[in-house]
Write a protein that binds this DNA or RNA. Structure first.
Lengths: 167, 167
DNA sequence: GTGTTTGCAAAGCATTTGCACAAGT
DNA sequence: ACTTGTGCAAATGCTTTGCAAACAC
């Protein structure tokens, strides 16, 4: 059994435990959504899955992403513009989000695992999840002359948003 | 000069510095967007402003919120469902977001002011903004029997707000 | 006076939904 | 067999835009 088959097996089990059926489309979508580091959008997952299942529909991708959220296997990250991005790294961490090119990188930072404890110690709020974003310019963009217009900010005078970077 | 006139004056100056005109609608929208602790949505700002300017349009509210973002006076917080919420507290802090009732509370936490420094020290990423959300149940909801379903939930199989990682 | 803003209605875009047929268990 | 999932198209909901009239400076 190779690595891909092994993680497929895990996916299938995770689906079935909660009563979801393990269809070929779902397995293909999970391969991309769960094992990509690119924080893909629904559309970029769709584009990838189409290579294997040319008749898959975008609706199926969206529905499967809802299933993955229900299974606590992905986190949905929404921004002022563009499509939501999906993050399958479910431990507390920092999302480094480039406002130039739209790339998102996960950064482990152990202090972020203390935040919920600090909240619980300081307030009566009962934490059960978190999201930490740091916005800025990634290394690639700061060393490159000019990147395509940015995906996460609106420009003052209505700059139309191009498509975000694909996975 | 009372407090309200004083902050109006600050708003007017902030607008003019960047070449924006200080219209009555904008001033009224800023009063609510900048001085409310409720993290209002565009629609709730619109409802408030209508009490004073009954003919104001929702489009004007949205346009003014874009101006306020351009002036770095508000941050837009997007979620998997419902309308964006606007936060005028621009120092690093934690957003305590109740997944039951949708209330958002700002919590000062000095360790959050170090996050950008930690990123800069650990990577080549150049931070220039951040967002820290902690999701959970607010005190009011945890002491109350059942609150009305809220704006941050999907009313389906998935009852939990999924824009979060597990803790 | 000149360029900007308003308010309206229409458009845009990401995402969801209803439904008939197909497929998994 | 029974139930759930798929793919399509239409619908939804939030937000943006185009434009003529009104306004700020």
């Amino acid at each position: 059994m190779n690595a891909s088959q092994k993680s497929d097996a895990a996916t299938i089990e995770a689906l079935r435990i909660k009563g979801y059926k393990a269809t070929p489309q779902r397995i293909a979508i999970c391969r991309i959504a769960l094992h990509s580091r690119e924080h893909p959008s629904a559309l970029s997952i769709y584009d990838e899955v189409k290579k294997v299942h040319p008749t898959v529909s975008l609706a199926t991708v969206y529905k499967t992403l809802q299933v993955l959220r229900d299974l606590d296997l992905v986190q949905e990250l929404n921004f002022p513009i563009g499509q939501a991005r999906f993050d399958s790294y479910m431990k507390p961490h920092i999302n480094l989000i480039c406002i130039q090119c739209g790339n998102i990188t996960d950064l482990d930072d152990l202090t972020t695992r203390e935040i919920a404890n600090r909240v619980a110690a300081a307030t009566k709020f009962k934490p059960n999840g978190q999201r930490i974003d740091v916005y800025g310019i990634c290394q690639k963009c700061s060393t490159t002359q000019l990147e395509p217009p940015n995906a996460l900010h609106r420009a003052k005078k209505t700059l139309r948003m191009q498509e975000m970077s694909k996975i």
